[in-house]
């Protein structure tokens, strides 16, 4: 699990590389135009990815707080 931090690349891929495919108005999702929805979605997923990394990161196993 040493390379677990590589997962942090996922939000960059979602937000940047996939952007050309998300740059459209339709379909509306949860009332939001698609582009806005896409960015909001990745903000939520970023938090999720960070949670997973935090849980699996061996550096966090020791209790320093």
């Amino acid at each position: 699990m040493k390379n677990i931090k590589l997962l942090l690349l996922i939000p960059f891929i979602g937000m940047c590389l996939c952007l050309p495919f998300a740059n459209k108005i339709e379909p509306y999702i949860f009332g939001l135009p698609f582009l806005l929805f896409w960015i909001i979605l990745w903000m939520i997923l970023s938090s999720l990815v960070l949670t997973i990394v935090y849980k699996l990161d061996p550096e966090n196993q020791g209790g320093d707080e």
Partner: peptide, 12 residues
């Protein structure tokens, strides 16, 4: 919000 979010990801 996009850059701020990525900044937090990077900050980890």
């Amino acid at each position: 919000p996009a850059y701020i979010c990525l900044a937090y990801v990077l900050s980890y």
